[in-house]
Design a protein around this nucleic acid. Sequence first.
DNA 1: CTTTATGCAAAACCTTTGCATGGTC
DNA 2: GACCATGCAAAGGTTTTGCATAAAG
Lengths: 144, 144
Amino acid sequence: MNQHRLEEGLALLKENRIRLTPQRLAILEYLANTDSHPTEDEIYKSLSNKFPNITNATIYNNLKCLKKNGIINELKYGEDASRFEWVTEPHYHVVCKSCGRMRDFNYPELKEVEAYVEKLSGFQINHHLFEVHGICSVCKQSQK
Amino acid sequence: MNQHRLEEGLALLKENRIRLTPQRLAILEYLANTDSHPTEDEIYKSLSNKFPNITNATIYNNLKCLKKNGIINELKYGEDASRFEWVTEPHYHVVCKSCGRMRDFNYPELKEVEAYVEKLSGFQINHHLFEVHGICSVCKQSQK
DNA sequence: CTTTATGCAAAACCTTTGCATGGTC
DNA sequence: GACCATGCAAAGGTTTTGCATAAAG
């Protein structure tokens, strides 16, 4: 139970006068306590027990809200649906192209490339993304 | 007119016994002669003059076919719709988060990160992606 | 009590698929 | 002539939106 994280998130919401509904809290708790980079649908399925009437729209609205308030990141870089993660220190992702699962990895931040590209292209750069694609050991196993 | 490219593509199709329809040729020509990383819809709109009855399905089918035969790459990493580019030497992309446009840039290939992550994660890595995000000069201008 | 969130339904958007017809080799 | 591609329509998956009701501060 990542209580510390959760409380930081709750504080951020309070600061920005975002109301705390039971559904929103449940989504926050779910995201604070996982490193699985869930999709909206995974969150939806997981909360359906506790909130039988919850809808995808509510989950989406909340994810958008949490993202806007700097609590979570949306990862659109994978294959189909967006995945979401708690905001932490900068890091990169390994993605399994078979099952879509993601895992974090750390590597010296490639900030120098941002500067290089900014000069080169005239773009105003504020972000970069490094992603490594392959097949995870589970999927590799089951392919045999 | 990038005749050289186009002929390579045509040769690849012939080699693999893929039929050359007028629509397919037009899509090939479009992609051989642009560096704009178009979406399916941009291609569709562009060909609608010449082929009034062409449908998105045809474009999609062809893009899938060209991708399968190693002639084009699909770039799914951006925001909404996939973008497509002619296959060339490895390179990276700068993406404008306002208009979605992409431009290529070159940088020493980060193959060593693949090896590092392979050891670290147990994934079998075969690809990586480096993308720099910002605002292009056109969008920066129009924001004022 | 004011304002925002929820749940529901509908729709938007991108992409895929089934099928009859037409075109390529 | 055999087989594949096209065009059309329909549907699938993800995400957004409008609106009445319910809940939060």
